[in-house]
Amino acid sequence: MNKLLQAMDKVRKSEHASPIRFDEQRIEREFSTLGTFIGKESSPNREVQVKYSKTKVQTNDPKILKKNKILSINDDDRETTNQLRYLRTQVLDKLKAIGGNSLLITSANSYEGKTFTSINLGVSIAKEFDKTVLIIDADLRKSSHNHCVFSKDFFDLDVDKGLVDYLEGNAEIPEILINPGIPKLTLIPSGKPTPNAAELLNSAKMQEMMAEIKKRYPSDRLIIVDGPPLIQYPDPIILSRFVDGVLLIVEAEKTSSEDLRKVIANLKDIPIIGTVLNKNKG
């Protein structure tokens, strides 16, 4: 626990330096609370309703999370859990090698497992004792109605504000930060779908936010940006400017080799730290 406290302290310190006014105590409290209640059944903390709070905190039943495919929450010895652990190690190694702490996760088409990978990877990294993780849902399109709503479907969170709201100037960063009840893990949901996602992502506000976040999250903190599909939208290219590396998700037996080639061509100037073969059946 000592180590954990130390890490928290570190976090706190860095947060002090941030120009954005975070409720440090809140975070402090949050973390300790979360640390205490983690893995236990407890009623969700409704303090997220506090209007001025920077990071909304919601606790979650691990069973629900597991049901919602957040597999990395478990410490079991299942194949997928182990695979996620392996992926986590690889990603961290690669980032370390390039000296970065931000990562864009994208794929050729929709529904190939970007969000699944983002969240599981994020949770898995957050479980490392010295890592904190921020996951930004940067897919502002949600063109298909059956697209999984990031926070709702994975974390059972009901959020009313997200990235779109911030970019449109309707919310401040602290308003859109949310803790899903997992220690050291923070989310920025996408918010309501918008047709002019590319413009918003290309705005100064986005740039500003990313700079802020990066600053607040030094190297032991990791920023994972969950982007939209690359073939359909230019968004991932824009987003790639704000990150150190790209992780490409490929769905086995679905992503065609042609699409994959297109993606590679589009990302030729951006460092791809690696690819993930998702839904592998072989």
Partner: peptide, 9 residues
């Protein structure tokens, strides 16, 4: 690009 992770169902 190397495949750094595989996720099975």
């Amino acid at each position: 690009v190397p495949v750094i992770g595989t996720i099975s169902i």
